[in-house]
Amino acid sequence: MTVTTMTRPTTASPSTTTAAAGAARRRAVLHWVAVHSVAVAAALFFLLPFVFVFLTSVMSDRQALTGDLWPHQWQWGNYLKVWQTPGFLGWWRNTLLYAGLGTLLTIVSSLPVAYALAKFRFRGRNLALMAVISMMMLPPQVTVIPMYLFWAKQLHLTGSLWPLIIPMAFGDAFSIFLLRQFLLTIPKEYVEAARIDGCGELRTLLRVILPMARPAVAAVALFQFFYCWNDYFGPQIYASENEGAWTLSYGLESFKGAHHTDWNLTMAATLLVMAPVIVLFFFAQKAFIEGVTLTGVKG
């Protein structure tokens, strides 16, 4: 990963006098101070919201309404209260089911498509690719009305997360696109060598390509997991009518509705919803950043 090794030594010209060297060093120090001051200010902008949210989450109901920054007394019990909210555990279970199963299905269904788009030659390939990109860019609201009618009237599956999970078994455009971009970078000699060894295409994909594409698969899995975890529109449409099917993102809003100005509890719940993705990030930092880079730079 190039990102981590980015310090670039500033080389002064060797023929300068000592006075000039001193001036250059002073300039370098000033530059260092200036740049790092800006960085600290930026870091405050990015981190202070987390700090305030955390501090508020351990305040008393009353203090959370005062605009105070520091808690008078640390009410850790707020977290317990949130955890014991009826339904909260269910929201966790549903979110994990949606995100876990959704991610798994996405990978299984998208990888072969991406492989075909990257490594097979066939008529209409560019057309198919353009269709994938169009699907990727399509706002979910465009198709939601007929899809809702379909899930509600034909299959009677509304009030559950299945209308969100099942489509993931049929390829996800963004994941297909991302995987294809990565598979393009694998030299075709690998594929050809495998074919000469008598591997079928499926075996080539699983035995040769998949191990090489592991970083891309990891990135796609993370993105999809995040997408499901963060999804609000989907559960709002399909699951809102059945509290037993709510996810964390949807439930959090109703939690706020039920607790109104108990901002301490709402902030504790907010942090609990944020925590898993942030923890996941620290475990999978590299795959993450590579994945984001893949969306923009490759191709």
Partner: peptide
């Protein structure tokens, strides 16, 4: 700094909005 700048991107939209609505 890289982690600090990156972290807010990870906050789920509903949670991030809720946090800002409070702040």
């Amino acid at each position: 700094f890289r982690t600090a700048f990156y972290l807010p991107y990870l906050a789920p939209p509903v949670a991030a909005t809720m946090a800002f609505a409070f702040l």
